[in-house]
């Protein structure tokens, strides 16, 4: 099941979905981002969408949307040219519904992630002068508290929440370690080096089960092998007490499918990836195999894939700005 919209721009960089509150009512809205404009779309009848707010960027281009769960009146975006230079909050003043932007952070921003309970974690700088900060927003997004986490002695590459443990946060580093923080105290709990065969991996999601951490990694540089085909995602089990790890599941493409990981998103137990072939592939991490393949539509390769934060929909984007919404 699909619908489409054209944000009338040729430089689509990201898409997201969130609940947006207007006049006391929350609606499931779509956010589209191009380099110079971010738009908020509200649903109309018969799966049509209407653009309700637009924020323009003339100086620094938009790189990505940073979804922050549990916020209903604010969108966070990262701006920069190749590297992230700013994080901004996009909101509307309550009186006249006029769009405005607030600078949240600037500098050499290496990684960021929106967390449950209206929190945003970001890291700036490299290992010797690295600062890791949590911003907590008020319900209306108007004010914020700030807290620092103890930095590790390695540069953070990505962050990942631990499903079911709101006070735990994972980070991956540029030299192939996984670190764990206690968000309540800011303590750095553990640094665990994982096998070098996982190098340059990105951690998308983590789950705590039976005393073990299960983490989902993607492999942008993984090579095809005869035994495993084309690996795209990997599920790894780590014992946080001993820092020992073992591979549990390798998500490879079905035979006959070509391509490597380009970008992807993991929600609950489903993982979606855009492949270099322009196809989107979806894996069920519980079943352990690829459950759906979405070939390019209208001869246009896919360039973006995101799970909706509001329901079980998949948002698929093409470079020309068209967004397709699929029910999974």
């Amino acid at each position: 099941h699909s619908t489409e919209q054209n944000p009338s721009s040729s430089c689509s960089v990201d898409v997201s979905a969130m609940w947006w509150e207007r006049a006391g009512t929350k609606e499931p809205c779509i956010i589209t981002a191009c380099e110079d404009v971010v738009s908020l779309w509200k649903p109309l009848d018969s799966m049509q969408w209407e653009k309700v707010h637009t924020w323009h960027f003339t100086e620094v281009p938009v790189l990505q949307i940073v979804p922050v769960p549990d916020i209903y009146s604010l969108i966070c975006v990262a701006l920069g040219s190749l590297e992230i230079r700013e994080i901004r909050a996009l909101l509307c003043s309550s009186g006249d519904e006029c769009e405005k932007q607030v600078l949240l952070q600037s500098g050499d921003i290496k990684a960021m992630l929106g967390l449950t309970k209206r929190r945003l974690v970001s890291s700036t700088g490299t290992f010797c002068n690295q600062q890791i900060q949590i911003m907590t927003f008020a319900e209306d997004g108007s004010s914020k508290d700030e807290q620092l986490l103890m930095p590790p002695d390695e540069t953070i590459l990505t962050f990942a929440e631990v499903h079911g443990m709101q006070e735990a946060l994972l980070g991956t580093t540029t030299v192939n370690s996984i670190v764990i923080w206690n968000l309540k105290t800011g303590q750095l709990l553990k640094k665990m080096h994982i096998d070098d065969s996982y190098q340059t991996c990105v951690c998308h999601r983590a789950y705590s089960e039976m005393g073990l951490l299960f983490i989902v990694l993607s492999h942008p540089c993984a090579k095809e092998s005869q035994a495993f085909g084309s690996p795209v995602f990997q599920l790894l089990a780590i014992n946080p007490m001993t820092a020992q790890s073992v591979g549990v599941l390798l998500c490879s493409l079905p035979q006959g499918q070509a391509g490597r990981f380009l970008e992807g998103d993991v929600k609950d137990h489903v993982a979606a990836a855009v492949l270099t072939s322009g196809t989107i592939a979806i894996w069920d991490l519980l079943l352990g195999h690829c459950t759906a393949l979405l070939p390019p539509v209208s001869d246009q390769s896919w360039s973006l894939v995101k799970w909706s934060g509001t329901d079980s929909h998949l948002l698929a984007g093409q470079k020309d700005g068209n967004i397709f919404i699929y029910r999974y």
């Binding site: 206690n182 709990l189 553990k190 005393g211 014992n239 007490m241 020992q244």
Partner: peptide, 23 residues
């Protein structure tokens, strides 16, 4: 490979590591 290779497991790993880590 098996999770038995990972050493002793603690269901309260988060609390245990928090009590051991520097503040």
């Amino acid at each position: 490979c098996s999770t038995a290779d990972l050493g002793p497991i603690s269901l309260n790993w988060f609390e245990e590591l928090s009590s051991e880590a520097p503040p």
